[in-house]
């Protein structure tokens, strides 16, 4: 049976290591969006040159999300939709990001690869999955509190800081102990591939897979 866990950021390594696959998390506190590769490179560039980042990642979360929002006349933010985007886009950058920033939570959909799973195990980080295509459910549990580096994409800045309030449901899909639902499913899919070919009369000899 899945445990339901309410977490307040910044979170400790112990809180993260206590999470197990299938636990359901409702998350509160500050989180940062991640949508484009150049956002990662900008952050890494700042870190490499020793500048102080405007974000506080230690014990915090990054969130693979596209967001529909506007600035209001009063200087605030009108958030209309906050959903989740495909995490595998960020496979290459994230292990180093976890190591350098001390984030403890990555939120997204579709999962991440083995290198990320290993980085999460080593540094004490989890992957929390949202249900894709469900921004109507998640949006009311978040607000935008700040934006960063709008000059990088003036028409559609997606470098945002959110304040989350019992944001969820979020599913522990990769834990800090080297377990991943996506690996389990991919293993099953690989095993079923030959059976599917056979059932459909597909001959696998003579052509490269």
């Amino acid at each position: 049976m899945a445990n339901i866990v309410y977490l307040q950021m910044p979170v400790s390594e112990e809180e993260i290591r206590a999470l197990r696959l299938d636990d359901i998390v409702y998350l509160s506190g500050e989180a940062y969006s991640m949508l484009y590769a150049d956002h990662y490179s900008r952050i890494m560039e700042e870190l490499n040159t020793g500048r102080k980042l405007p974000m506080r990642f230690e014990g915090g979360a990054i969130y693979h999300t596209g967001t529909i929002w506007r600035r209001t006349a009063e200087g605030g933010y009108d958030l209309r939709a906050l959903g989740t985007t495909t995490s595998s886009k960020f496979n290459a950058q994230t292990p180093a990001f976890i190591e350098r920033t001390g984030i403890r939570i990555v939120m997204g959909k579709g999962g991440m690869d083995r290198e990320n799973l290993e980085a999460m195990k080593r540094f004490g980080c989890v992957y929390l999955a949202l249900v894709g295509g469900c921004s109507a459910i998640y949006t009311s549990h978040a607000e935008i509190v700040d934006e960063y580096w709008p000059e990088l994409m003036p028409t559609d800045n997606q470098r945002l800081k959110f304040r989350l309030k019992e944001f969820g449901p979020l599913f522990v899909a990769m834990d800090a102990h080297g377990n991943s639902f996506y690996e389990q499913t991919a293993g099953e899919t690989d095993r079923s591939r030959e059976a599917i070919y056979e059932r459909l009369g597909i001959k696998t000899g003579g052509r490269d897979v």
Partner: peptide, 24 residues
């Protein structure tokens, strides 16, 4: 559970004239 959340999301989107998904 996931299928249930998808159905619930669709209901909320239609009632509030909100987008089903932020990727329009």
């Amino acid at each position: 559970e996931y299928l249930g959340i998808m159905i619930e999301n669709a209901k909320r989107a239609a009632e509030g004239r909100m987008v089903i998904c932020q990727d329009t």
